[in-house]
Structures are given as structure tokens and as C-alpha cells.
Design a protein around this nucleic acid. Structure first.
Lengths: 141, 141
DNA sequence: TATCATTATGATAATCAATTTCAATATTTA
DNA sequence: TAAATATTGAAATTGATTATCATAATGATA
């Protein structure tokens, strides 16, 4: 983890940013959690360890990480962005409407079909988001 | 159009709602446009014809239509819901990141693949949203 | 049609997440 | 160390959504 954070900070410096203790704490928590967190969720988690850290800094850190490609955001329709590790391979999501659990999956066939569709409509694909909404086994019990 | 509106209003009455002139005007504009409109966009369009109509009523009308299944909302990541005719067959969207043009498509193969994936993860599918983001031919010129 | 209960309306206010501002603080560079 | 620059937390602002409320419109009933 430490070497990974050092690598990210090296990238940050390239962009004219400084290596602050606060940002390091926030990044560490974000990459440790390995979950799909909203700004608010990460803010609470970070605050448990260091109550002095403000919401705006958590927000700005996630934004910065997203700009550098170290985080990516998804939306599951409840009005708030969730962030995940941006370094992992591209994937889509299944989201439980009851407990909000998010599962990642990857299906190369779907990816290919999307490319075909985009071509048909003369679109140059930049990105896509696919989220399947449903109810998980636990919540159906 | 008129008979369709009459049909919708009949449904509204079943739900204890009344047939108001204002709501009829808003519904007519919505179904005439056949576009993916935000509340604000529909509000402006409606206001051109009848400046006295308020934003809240447009908002409430769309919400009501959505509840009845006559409208459905999508999000393309710019923070505002867009509404479309909810009576049309299920489809997904390709959205131009530059001009915000939205094209509908349907691919049965993708639908099937999604079902397989959901089964694999023990999810009961309720819905899904797939939006391909890209740049359209016009905007690439 | 007149009455009356109920719903609808428009203006405005409240809410909520995202984003910006700003004065004080921390980091980097020379 | 000192100067230049970026960062921070608190608070303010924004932009969209949603709620509130007094007034108006609608519909059922007499």
C-alpha cells in the first residue's frame, strides 16, 4: 500500500500538486476500503480516524484521483456518485435495490456488442455504463 | 393524440386524480415532443405556449406519468433526469457527450447476456440501464 | 346549478449533493 | 529560512429536486 501511495503521489507532483498528510490519509482509506463509496461515506470513515478532516478535502481528493485515473465514479440512481478504485479493469455493475450492495462483473461479449451498436450509429465510443438493478439472494429471503 | 390523452386521463381518474387543463397541456407537449426532456426543458416548451404554467406542475406531471408507467426517466450523468415516453418498448441509449443527443437502441443479445449474468450472481433482475457515451458523427466533424 | 369536499396549481421555500470561496496553514523550492 | 505556491476546513453557493401553502379548479351530490 505504501509504495502504491508513493507512486500516486509521484504522479500528483508531476501535476504540480503537493504531498500533504491529509490527502495521504484520505487516499489510504479509499484504497484500503476497496468498496464503492460515496463522498459522504468516505468522509465518515476518514473522520473516524482523524476527526479534523473536512468534507471538502475528501471531495477534492476523490475528484483529483478521478482526474488522474486512480478512481472512477458510478451512479446507481440514488442521486449520489460512488467512487471505486480506478485501476481495476473495466467492469460493469449489478446493484441490489434493497441493500445497495454492488457487485462487479465483466462480460467481453457485451462489450463487443456495444462496439457493434456504436459503429452502426456512427458513434465513437468514449465510455459506457451498464448497471443491472435487482434484488440479491439475501434480500429475497 | 387526443384519444391517447383521454386514455391516460381515465387512468388518472382511477387513481383519484382530476382532469385539469394544465396537466393536459403539459402531457400533450410531453408526448408530442417525443424527445428525452429534462423537467426544465419541458417547462420551457410548455411555457412558450402557456406562460402561466409553473415549474412545479411540470415536475409533478412528469412524476405522476412515471408512476403510471407513461413516462420513464434516464440519467446521462449530467445531474438531471430526462424523461421519455414510457410506453415504448424497452431500449438502451447511446448519448453524445458533446451535443447530448440521445439515440435509442435495442439489442436482444445484450438483454439475454444480462439475464445470464444476473442468474450467475443470484440476482432477480428488476431493471437495468445501459448508456453508451461517445461522440456522434456530426460532433466529430 | 349550488354546495362542498377534494385535488391541482403557482410561487416560494426547503432540501440535498456537488462545488466554490476564502482566510489560515502546510509544503516545496531556492 | 524566506518566498512562492498548493492545501485545508468551514462556510457559502449552486443547481436540481422536492415540499409547503394559500388560492383556484374540479367533480360528486343534492
Amino acid at each position: 500500500m505504501e509504495e502504491f501511495l508513493a507512486k500516486v503521489e509521484k504522479e500528483l507532483k508531476k501535476k504540480g500538486k503537493k504531498a500533504s498528510k491529509t490527502r495521504r490519509k484520505i487516499m489510504k482509506m479509499f484504497f484500503t476500503l476497496e468498496e464503492h463509496v460515496s463522498v459522504d461515506e468516505l468522509y465518515r470513515k476518514v473522520k473516524e480516524k482523524d476527526p479534523g478532516i473536512g468534507y471538502a478535502t475528501v471531495y477534492r481528493t476523490l475528484k483529483t484521483l478521478e482526474e488522474l485515473g486512480y478512481a472512477s465514479s458510478i451512479e446507481i440512481g440514488d442521486g449520489k456518485k460512488r467512487f471505486e478504485n480506478g485501476m481495476s479493469m473495466h467492469h460493469d455493475h449489478i446493484c441490489c435495490l434493497v441493500c445497495k450492495k454492488i457487485i462487479e462483473f465483466n462480460d467481453p461479449e457485451i462489450e463487443i456488442l456495444q462496439k457493434i451498436i456504436a459503429n452502426k450509429h456512427d458513434f465513437k465510443i468514449i465510455d459506457h455504463s451498464l448497471c443491472i438493478f435487482g434484488i440479491c439472494l439475501d434480500c429475497r429471503k
